[in-house]
Simulated assay, not measured.
Amino acid sequence: MIGKPITGRSFGGCVRYVVNKQDAKIITAEGVRIQNAGAIIQDFNLQRKMRPELGKAVGHLVLSWSKEDLSKLNDGIMAERAKEYMDKVGIRDTQFIVVRHNDREHPHLHVIYNRVDNNGNTITDKNNFAKNVKACKEITLKYDYHLGDGKDQVNRQALKGKEKIRYELFDTIKAALKQSVNWKQLEGQLQKQGISIAYKFRSGTNEVQGISFEKGDIKMKGSAIDRSLSYASIDTQLNRNLQVQQQHAARVVNQPSLADQLREVIRQRTQADQVPIPGGGKSILETLLEPQFVSGPPDPVGDADIARRKRKKREAEQSQSQGISR
């Protein structure tokens, strides 16, 4: 299960979009009349008046499951999971509606809630993203829902607003982290992309307590972008990258050159050739050095010349013999 928390200003636009969509179904609600979108909007706005200074009073959540979880879900179960999620992230004692949509392959629902609770207090949106990740993970593990492949599978083109920027930061930081072995290198990689790092130090010390990333007028905590981008997680990854680099460098230094490898092969073969044959015989090398093996191959040109000279000698001897007989 994954969640997407959103805050907004207008109950009218949000409620009409969620409730009036084709095949939309309100599966649970509290504190509002659900006859139609108009009644829901009116009830939300009535309670909102207790905190007129709160600009973004609209809370909107999208909770989604993998299509592999469809057999484990129905309207009642999805409504209960939405309530459980809200309790985990601190959305309590307020108006809300839970609406299931059926326009996608994967099961999902929308929750609209009032950030002005029933007592006129404001429901905080601080650390919404970090709380969202924690709650979704706990519910997914508790009910054995399908674990997705993470942010790599999210459709970036469909994202908007702050969520789009969050994923852009995630992708850029992850890419820079793969090429860095220390914080200085990481800072340099990110500066090329227009992103700076702001460190939060423990009061009165040089100990880093947290980290944020800034691009333009947007600033987000590392843990709010993704848990893997907290200061501790990044520091661990940088140290791991450094160890891998050092191990690779050590292997390169210790690896013998090609010439050394060839010399070693020749040395081993020479030693093998000089090993005496069992039974007292000569070694292979000694056998190969004997004259019959050292002498070169027959010389056909030289052999023909010798034969020609022998033939002339015989002819001369025969001529002399015939002369004497006469």
Results as ranks from 00 to 15, higher is better:
I266C: 11
G296Y: 07
T270P: 06
F213S: 04
S283F: 13
D303C: 05
I234G: 02
A304C: 01
Q255H: 12
G302M: 05
E290T: 14
P300M: 02
R326P: 03
Q274M: 15
L289Y: 15
V208R: 02
I306D: 06
F293D: 06
G280H: 12
A304T: 03
S295E: 10
A304F: 05
T270R: 13
Q243F: 02
I211H: 03
T287Q: 14
R267A: 15
G279E: 03
G222I: 04
A316H: 01
E207Y: 00
Q255D: 15
Q255T: 13
G280A: 13
V265S: 09
E290W: 11
A304I: 03
I284P: 07
R314P: 00
Q292A: 13
Q271L: 15
L288K: 05
D303V: 07
V253Q: 05
Q274C: 14
R314M: 04
N239I: 02
Q322F: 08
V301L: 04
V253A: 12
F213Y: 11
E264N: 10
G216N: 05
D235E: 06
M220W: 04
D303N: 07
I324W: 05
Y231A: 04
S230R: 00
M220C: 03
L258K: 14
V301R: 01
F213D: 02
G210F: 02
G323P: 01
D305Q: 09
E207Q: 06
L238F: 03
Q247S: 13
K219W: 02
S212D: 03
R314K: 08
M220P: 02
Q246H: 08
I266W: 03
D226A: 08
G323N: 09
S223R: 02
V208M: 02
T270G: 13
T236G: 01
L238E: 00
R314D: 05
R309E: 06
Q209E: 09
D235M: 02
G280M: 10
G296P: 10
S223P: 00
I306G: 08
A259S: 14
P300L: 03
A272K: 11
Q322H: 06
Q274N: 15
I277T: 12
R240S: 14
R311E: 14
P278M: 04
Q209V: 00
S295Y: 08
A272Q: 11
Q320G: 11
L258W: 08
T236P: 00
N206R: 06
Q247G: 13
G323R: 11
A272D: 12
I266F: 05
R251H: 12
